[in-house]
Nucleic acid binder design. Sequence first.
RNA 1: GCGGAUGUGGUGAAAUUGGUAGACACGCUAGACUUAGGAUCUAGUGCCGUGAGGUGUGCGGGUUCGAGUCCCUCCAUCCGCACCA
Length: 930
Amino acid sequence: MEYNPREIEAKWQSFWKRTEMFKVTIDPEKPKFYVLDMFPYPSGAGLHVGHPLGYIASDIYARYKKLLGYNVLHPMGYDSFGLPAEQYAVQTGQHPAITTQENIERYREQLDKLGFNYDWSREIRTSSPKYYRWTQWIFMQLFNSWYNPITNRAEPIDELILHFSQEGFDRSTNSVLHGGVETIPASFTSAEWLSFDKKRQSEILMNFRLAYLGESYVNWCSALGTVLANDEVVNGTSERGGHPVERKLLKQWNLRITAYGQRLLEGLDSLDWSESIKETQRYWIGRSEGASIYFPLENGQGSIEVFTTRPDTLFGVSFVTLAPEHELVAQLTTPENKATVEAYVQLSKNRSERERLADVNTVSGVFTGSYAWHPFSQEKIPIWIGDYVLVSYGTGAVMAVPAHDERDFKFATFFSLPIKPVIQPNKEHDFNHNAWELKEGKVINSLFLDGLEVQEAIGKILNEMEDKAYGVKKLNFRLRDAVFGRQRYWGEPIPVFFEDGVPYLIREDQLPLELPVVESYLPTEDGAPPLGRAKNWVYENGSDYEQSTMPGWAGSSWYFLRYLDPNNLTNLASKEAVDYWGNVDLYMGGAEHATGHLLYARFWCKFLFDIGIVPFEEPFKKMINQGMILGRSNFVYRILGSSTFVSGELKDAHNTNPIHVDISLVNNDRLNLEGFKAWRPEFRDAEFILGDSGEYLCGVEIEKMSKSKHNVQTPDELIERYGADTLRMYEMFLGPVEQSKPWDIKGITGVYGFLKKYWKLFHQGGNFEVTEIAPKREHLKTLHKTIKKIREDLDRFSFNTGVSSFMICVNELSESQCNHREILEPLTVLLSPYAPHITEEIWDQLGHVSGSLYNTPFPEYNAEYLIESSFDYPISFNGRMRFKITLPLDLGAKDVEAAVLAHGEYVKWTEGKNPKKIIVVPGKIVNVVL
RNA sequence: GCGGAUGUGGUGAAAUUGGUAGACACGCUAGACUUAGGAUCUAGUGCCGUGAGGUGUGCGGGUUCGAGUCCCUCCAUCCGCACCA
């Protein structure tokens, strides 16, 4: 009986489906384990071999945990709102839901063939109204909440409204707002609050709601007709499509993620994630402690607020710089400077982000003509404008201290402004060339700060400043509030309608607010989003709905919760389900979502925690980031101006042009000549100059997998040829999951051979046969050594070394022709997480007719079988291994040493010298020091 | 520029606590078998050397009886961020 993966795999896949083998329910008797894969966007291209890498690893782990007795939740779904389906809709008029449905079916087919243990009864799709009803519901909760800085959590906005109507609002004691986009409302009394009209009240509340409508600079991509998140912009162009992106002031829905800055930062410490992702998030959140300091304007009309982390250098200020977009620019520009300033502001506005990034070293700026007073020294400080100051960070204004800040230094040098050192460097330093940026040295030229060390000076000036009300200590975050709307069709409608320009939530019983039918997916003539085309799409009272939709990351920010209870009609998930399954124990996915999805999901989880929906603050306890599988491209070399192709090793002797050749026409870098000629009409008459071997050797390069490079390998063709078990094991065998690696088909035969060898253990005479006779000790040793290794490897997610161990085990058993049931049966269970189909078939043949080995306990190893009585001591001289002696393990160090001295080879290596020392590490090594 | 990661045979890699470097697999070489297959089996395969032996984990240094592993300096590659006051 031959190993026939095609037959076996189809048989067991249908068996699992029929018996609902992977369906899980709450079982308080068992401990739970939640394994989650980042769900895919179902693209039209389908899966290539790189995609399942993480799914295979998590599947193996999930199966392992299941066999260990855990109740394992391992669901899958689709992040099915997204731009490609919509772009296709724009081009063809086909509804994105249809495209999406087709792509999902193709994905499902491919996933099913890999033998995953997903509980498909829990499948979710973010674009399904049954699902996005709850995405909309969460938005409504965000709209109805504000962040209370005293209790440090989200609270109902109604409580804040009540507070306003009883106490009013005092701006000076406000420390509510964290972000940079909002403006803090002016103070008002309770009576004033009650007298404000709805519009005014709504506008004030927008400064507090966690989901709010606010005017902010956004990344506007006119080619895509939408706003992009920071992480969707790459070098000033859109991540998808590479279209130019400009900064534009727009009224947008935003989420106040900045309110959670501190908690998002602190939460990282408790997570078992890669250091690299945690660092990226820390940097992205960008917490910095400092002070807001007010510089009164010379004209007496208020003051400029600057943010600084170096208040100790306050006496070194020689000018103040405003961002070109700063609100005071117009007011501060004197008539004689008006033309220059306006020209400069206009220029910086039109400069794309990309341009501004490109020339970091170019200094530009203009003087406004106005001055401010230094709060302590009462000096007159000129006010400049410079585009090195960003309006979105801090207060959009800096106090420039050229002696101690490199950018200020460049600016001052360029415009010949004074450079005044106030910290005495503790090393040699030349203030003519550089700023002294280190927080080291003694303060000088600074009145009451003189003589203090930097840290002491910071403490003192902060206290002094707050006493005199010249400024306040301030925590600042680089993190920006998240834009939560895009001018697109294929997304969740925002459950809001407008009445007299005031936004209101729709009633909860009106959820889901479904996407309306439109006849075209383009923006309307007057620039409104596609939803503006919907006919009669109004709320029950006749009011217009919000026309923008939610961004791509909305649905993925909470999907892990819906899997817990996917069909619940009255709640996002039942309390019972949330309490039992809890958060994700193992999250498998790409590292590219470091600052997008992974930050937003943490934010939503903390919010849902605050409002009592979930009992945990972090969604994903442990995360593993699978590496990318790169393509291995093959090249042929055409001699210029001819149709002659020269073999790779000879290409340098000719003037050639490399051409990507489809990897299916290449075997072990040797080109299939006939196949190549038939590949494309233009190559029909190709001629070849072959190498010495008589074959055509192709060139090789490692690149991303893509259609245009003809290096895409789909799982389907490999499963067809070798089976899913082989593919699963081979992907693991390639190397550590976290590492990126090139895909190379050629090693797959090794793994295929292994499975055949394993199969052969049971079919040595051609037919299935195992013996009930008790196995030899060496067999038991092989088995138990393997059990131990496999468990250890799985526990540390070292899937590649696990495959090697199986190979070693099967090699050893084959060599001694072992076919003892007592050995092969546990081995089969041990192997089943990696190769679920073949092991299920063997298990069946072993006589377990009714059941599946999916319900069998994982083998335990017995240390007794691993005990050795002797050991091959490596004998090294000065750390270099020379020979070995087999000695009993219970031999004492003295006796080991004696045995070494007595050994025939000993004299040869000592060269007659007396050893200085002999180190004996029992059971490990002997080292003779000469 | 800042942050993170990675450098081991022709290739993918292993070496978990400092203790025999290169397990396992591909490829390659030689051979066997044959129902001529994308099959199976045997032997060999880091590099230099006929050999004894020498040498070897990106470079250079250090700690140690002993370093791929620990410390310092540098180099290369990949990823992320980028005027953050």
